[in-house]
Computed example of a mutant assay.
Amino acid sequence: MDKNKLKLTSSEIGTLWAEYVNGTMTDVVNRYMFSIVEDESIKTIFEDAIKTFAKQKKQIVVFIENEGFPVPLGFTESD
């Protein structure tokens, strides 16, 4: 069996979808908190969280697109 042609299960696709939606929601909150927090040490934590999710989001999108599914809309700044 070719490991490059393995398909994700429905459970895995569902988990990726949920992670994308939950992650975009958390990202909106983190960006808001980053904009209002004054303590630099706490602001750094939010900045790290924003950067970490940006990397995760790219990888989730790749997994979803490779399976031929549409990427969920997720949350945006307008929500």
Rank of each mutant, 00 (worst) to 15 (best):
T9W: 13
T26E: 14
T44P: 00
E47C: 03
F46D: 01
M33A: 10
G14W: 14
K3W: 10
K58H: 06
E77W: 09
R31V: 03
V29T: 10
W17F: 15
R31E: 06
E19P: 00
E77Q: 15
N22E: 15
Y20C: 01
G23Y: 05
W17K: 09
S41P: 01
F69V: 08
K58Q: 11
V37L: 14
K55H: 11
P70M: 00
A49G: 04
W17A: 03
V62R: 09
V29M: 15
S41A: 13
I50Y: 03
I13D: 06
M25G: 05
N30R: 07
G14F: 10
T15Y: 13
F69T: 05
L73A: 09
N4K: 11
N22A: 09
A18L: 14
I50W: 07
K3R: 13
G68L: 12
S35I: 11
D48H: 08
E19Q: 11
D27C: 05
K43P: 00
V62M: 10
Q59G: 04
V37F: 09
D2E: 12
G14R: 11
V21N: 05
F63K: 07
F69S: 04
Q59D: 12
E67P: 00
L8N: 05
P70E: 08
L6M: 15
F69I: 07
A54K: 13
E65S: 09
I45H: 03
E77K: 15
E65L: 13
E40C: 08
E47W: 10
V29N: 10
T15M: 13
Y20R: 01
A49P: 01
S41E: 14
F53C: 02
A18W: 13
F69C: 07
K58I: 05
P70A: 02
E12Y: 10
M25L: 11
N30G: 04
V21A: 01
G68Q: 12
K43A: 03
S11E: 15
F34L: 07
L73D: 12
D2Y: 08
F46H: 03
I45A: 03
N66M: 03
L16S: 01
F53K: 00
V29L: 15
F34M: 03
D2N: 08
N22P: 00
E67F: 12
K51M: 07
F46M: 04
T24E: 02
S10I: 11
P72L: 07
N4P: 00
E19R: 11
